[in-house]
Amino acid sequence: MTTLQITYFAALRDTTGYAEETLTTEMATAKALFHELTAKYHWPFAETDIQVAINDRYQSTDTLLKEGDRIVFIPPVAGG
């Protein structure tokens, strides 16, 4: 089990109703965690729509999660 700090922005925060949560999970990778959270919050995104930041840097969704990681799932960006 790994305990993570998860931060939600924009469309994802709208689905959770809060910006942060501490979550303990059995999921080993960011990709697996994405699917766990999609089931929980009914996110309207495919795996290929989403990027992940771990400890404030883009990482592969295959990255193994470590105790205390800060995780941010990033839906398609729309700056500019």
Partner: peptide, 21 residues
């Protein structure tokens, strides 16, 4: 690549997060 998101507010009161892939 910069993680910034945009919510459009419309004159009819709706608001939508825009996908801009």
């Amino acid at each position: 690549s910069v993680p910034i998101w945009k919510k459009e507010h419309y004159s009819n009161g709706e608001a939508i997060w825009v996908r801009c892939d």
